[in-house]
């Protein structure tokens, strides 16, 4: 067991972990932050996307011990301080960017990373950026539309709702 200390959504946590504890296990089982979903566990689907030191990574493919000293962000930390949905989350709701919602935490976390680097992405840039986030329900159009809307752009060019 090794002791790890990190901040998760702004709060400092310190825990003993095994070497082979994945971040998905640490967040879900130790911290009870179950918004980080496990779709594939093989780094394909992106449902487990979190932020580590400001970069999006797949929590199923990084060990908790590797995040010692890191700043970690998860979907639970995305809402505004008053508990209302942030602009990306609200856009997913407004534009029907989810159906079952399983992929949604990862989509929102990936979208946040995209908009941080590229505040006004084109439709093609959004689609390319989401290559590592798989959704089996929506067909993606409304996800792309939500991200366009969250970036303050016209959404009428994206396929109809």
């Amino acid at each position: 067991m090794t002791k790890v200390t990190m901040t998760v959504n702004g709060k400092t946590v310190a825990k003993e972990v095994r070497g082979n504890t994945l971040m998905t296990e640490f967040l879900r089982d130790e911290l009870r932050l179950t918004g980080t979903h496990v779709g594939c566990d093989t780094s394909q689907c992106g449902a487990c996307t979190i932020h580590v030191n400001g970069l999006n990574v797949k929590a199923c493919t990084i060990f908790a011990a590797e995040c010692d000293g890191a700043e970690v962000g998860t979907i639970e930390g995305q809402a505004n301080a008053d508990g209302s949905l942030n602009v990306i989350q609200q856009a997913f709701q407004d534009h029907h960017g989810l159906q079952c919602g399983f992929c949604t935490p990862g989509m929102v976390m990936a979208a946040a990373s995209l908009l941080k680097d590229n505040p006004k992405p084109s439709e093609a840039e959004i689609r390319h950026y989401l290559e590592g986030n798989i959704c089996r329900c929506t067909g993606y159009h409304n996800i792309v539309k939500a991200i366009m809307a969250a970036s303050g752009q016209d959404v009428s060019v994206i396929a109809a709702e």
Partner: peptide, 9 residues
């Protein structure tokens, strides 16, 4: 290579 999250690691 891969996708953005893979490229970050």
């Amino acid at each position: 290579i891969g996708d953005p999250a893979v490229r970050n690691r």
